[in-house]
Write a protein that binds this DNA or RNA. Structure first.
Length: 127
DNA sequence: CGCTTGACCGGAA
DNA sequence: ATTCCGGCCAAGC
């Protein structure tokens, strides 16, 4: 497996945590989504950033402070990333009203749209 | 000092 | 649908 780290790891991690703190109850975000919402650090090529940043976010979550709703961060497949503690994460999300189907959540329904964006449940089907 | 081991993702095969 | 690959680091034994 390949790895990298952001130039200023501590600073990057704090930006990640700050963003995750804004995720509302009952919503989820993906690692890649958080990475996308953050500005690429200077000295990091855009292509490299796109390829590596989701894992930086994962690294940040592995070290996140207690006041961060870490359970609301899942992977781009709508699943909880494999590790010890995954079961606890699922439990917390289910307590927030999130439904799992075949170990996956419906991102269309639960994914947070980002800061400054109203997160009303969209009326999808209307015919 | 030298391994080993990671909360990822999108595109290609 | 499923598997494979590139990206090319750093903290903990």
């Amino acid at each position: 497996m390949r790895y990298t780290s952001p130039p200023n790891q501590q600073s990057y991690y704090e930006q990640v945590w700050q963003l995750v703190r804004q995720v509302p109850y009952g919503k989820v975000v993906t690692y890649g989504q958080i990475a996308q919402l953050l500005p690429p650090p200077i000295d990091v090529e855009l292509a490299a950033y796109k390829a590596l940043s989701p894992r930086w976010v994962g690294d940040a979550m592995a070290a996140c402070p207690k006041d961060v709703p870490w359970q609301r961060v899942i992977n781009a497949q709508g699943q909880i990333s494999e590790r010890s503690g995954a079961q606890r994460q699922r439990q917390l999300l289910e307590e927030e009203g999130i439904i799992f189907v075949k170990d996956k959540v419906d991102l269309k329904q639960y994914q947070w749209q980002g800061p400054g964006h109203a997160d009303e449940p969209r009326q999808a089907t209307l015919f």
